[in-house]
């Protein structure tokens, strides 16, 4: 579907369909795995307190944390990507591309190398790292009056620098990060409810706050000067949105590792499906990101069972070709774009 042809009705249909996709992906994630679990067992375990069966134990202690982690990280990274793209007025910007993920990862790695961290501290430190990364790119963009391409390229450079720093820390302090490869690729194999809870709280609060700023984001998307001339205090709103994007990225990375692509591809997919109005786009990104990551994680568990592919790998294999197909489709629809 070409974005320019999105009608309000089409957009509403997509917004009604997305919760069903999220629910379906969550149920699949809970049911599918090395041991198949019937949907009835899920209902018993989750809603009637039945925790005495093997199925219930699998759901409550293994699958539920993993499913929630996939849902939350997908939502968080997709919304963070949409916010960053709006704030930087740059459709190529995404948390993994402009170095936000890598700076959050570096903060976590450094903190782990210096001292063992509690579950509460990890998302906070990842948030601080993500915030530092996003502010660095914003500062570079503002100081140089950078074009869209320069902003992305400076972000790519920053991202590479931070990734090299992560590698250096892990080389020098091998015990800094257990499950290092999982962390680099992104995955949920070691997620527990204890680890997830503080990050989940940060994600839910940040998502709610982003939704309250939807109107301002639409004004911001008109360009800095137009936004200012319409009475928007651009700088504080931009800063608030970047802080929220950093909180979302940092919290997600603290338990999911450096998941790539979600923050880039989901906002673009959703723009094509529901348009650019933030009041529709942000909920669509939250639901689309949740469903995509959860489905990819489930695929990773079943495709080569008993071996398991990390969700980051599946996301790349499934998400990137789909994204390229969308781009090519657009090019076919808009000669000379």
């Amino acid at each position: 579907m070409r974005s320019s042809q999105i009608s309000s009705t089409d957009s509403s249909k997509v917004l009604l369909l997305l919760p069903a996709c999220v629910l379906l992906s969550a149920v699949l994630s809970l049911c599918v795995g090395a041991v198949a679990v019937a949907p009835g067992d899920i209902v018993s375990a989750l809603f009637f307190g039945r925790n005495d069966t093997v199925a219930a134990k699998i759901i409550l202690y293994t699958r539920l944390p993993r499913t929630l982690a996939a849902l939350l990280s997908g939502s968080a990274l997709a919304v963070a990507g949409a916010v960053i793209q709006t704030v930087l007025c740059n459709p190529l910007a995404a948390p993994n591309i402009i170095g936000v993920n890598a700076s959050a990862g570096l903060a976590v790695t450094l903190a782990c190398a210096l001292a063992p961290m509690s579950a509460v501290a990890t998302p906070v430190i990842a948030f601080a790292g993500a915030l530092a990364g996003v502010l660095l790119v914003l500062a570079l963009s503002e100081m140089t009056g950078a074009s869209r391409m320069t902003t992305v390229l400076s972000g790519v450079a920053v991202s590479n620098l931070f990734s090299a720093a992560i590698d250096a820390v892990v080389t020098l302090v091998p015990d800094a990060l257990s499950g290092y490869s999982d962390f680099r690729i992104g995955g949920f194999a070691s997620v527990t409810m204890t680890r997830l809870a503080p990050a989940a709280a940060l994600i839910l609060v940040s998502l709610a706050l982003v939704m309250t700023l939807a109107q301002q984001m639409d004004i911001l998307a008109l360009g800095t000067q137009t936004a200012q001339s319409l009475g928007l205090a651009v700088r504080p709103v931009r800063l608030a949105l970047l802080v929220l994007a950093a909180a979302l990225c940092g919290a997600a990375i603290s338990f999911a590792g450096l998941l790539g692509f979600v923050g880039l591809i989901v906002p673009h997919m959703m723009r094509r499906l529901v348009g650019e109005e933030s009041q529709r786009l942000m909920p669509a990104c939250a639901m689309g990101g949740a469903a995509l990551v959860t489905l990819c994680d489930t695929l990773g568990r079943v495709l080569f069972a008993p071996y398991e592919l990390s969700v980051g790998i599946v996301l790349s294999f499934a998400g990137v070709p789909f994204f390229l197909w969308l781009l090519l489709k657009k090019r076919g629809g808009h000669a000379g774009d």
């Binding site: 974005s3 320019s4 999105i6 007025c89 639409d218 998307a221 008109l222 360009g223 000067q225 137009t226 200012q228 001339s229 319409l230 009475g231 928007l232 205090a233 723009r271 348009g275 650019e276």
Partner: peptide
């Protein structure tokens, strides 16, 4: 900024095309 925007409107030179 809002008080200024209630007194003067600005049609800028470069304009984005949002969907």
């Amino acid at each position: 900024r809002k008080e200024i925007a209630q007194r003067a409107a600005f049609l800028t030179q470069s304009r984005t095309t949002p969907v």
